[in-house]
Design a protein around this nucleic acid. Structure first.
Lengths: 109, 109
DNA sequence: TCCGATACTTTGGAGTTGACAGTATAAACA
DNA sequence: TGTTTATACTGTCAACTCCAAAGTATCGGA
């Protein structure tokens, strides 16, 4: 890093929005799981994870959708059907996140 | 669960250790900040972030060190001096994490 | 009439984080 | 002698976030 300006506090704490969001439980996994399975329904994600609570998964999906990383499409059917997929931004982020998750998976297996 | 399908539940929830750890507040930023500033002292990180509480920063450093991603070196001096730097694993992870943080920074600026 | 299917909420308790104050040490200063 | 300074934390308690489990809404089918 440069010496003259050495420490810009903003530089390492983009806590503003997205990083904060990604720092919540299952956020990164949810994003990448949608990327891998899209279009994907709520129930599919729930079984794919197996150990996330429905309320948390629901909150994460809402977070990610609200941040413009996921798109939610709801069909007027009974029983309800909702499909999630990545937005363009979500796809870009997912591409960058994949190597991280892959490295972790590999290291832990 | 073993539907012969393509869904291995383990695949998207490496919650086991590291992802869980990275999903805590400031974990990703701390790792990358150490990578950018190493060798770096506690106080430098505190001012670089500006908005993290000392207890949380302390907890994150301990988490990351415990996971083998950071190395902590303590010198016998008064006032105390402690230096953090990336381990080899930490460096690999940091390399993969940087594009994520960079993308987020760019998108939010 | 009751059941099944789906995508969530709600609730109450447990776990995590934050702000702020405090600890320990010794050299430098008054 | 006594106070200040510097550093790297730790302690406390309130606020926030997360979890498991149960509940909600709807309508077609048995």
């Amino acid at each position: 890093m440069s010496e003259s300006t050495d420490l810009d506090p903003q530089c390492y704490c983009p806590t503003s929005g997205i990083i904060d969001l990604l720092s919540r439980k299952y956020a990164m996994q949810t994003l990448c799981a949608v990327g891998a399975l899209e279009p994907v329904r709520y129930g599919e994600l729930e079984t794919a994870f197996g150990d996330v609570s429905s309320s948390t998964l629901s909150a994460r999906l809402e977070d990610l959708t609200g941040a413009g990383l996921l798109e939610r499409e709801q069909y007027d059917e009974i029983p309800p059907r909702v499909e999630y997929r990545l937005s363009d931004d979500g796809e870009e982020l997912c591409e960058r996140l994949e190597p991280v998750l892959a490295w972790v998976r590999e290291r832990e297996s």
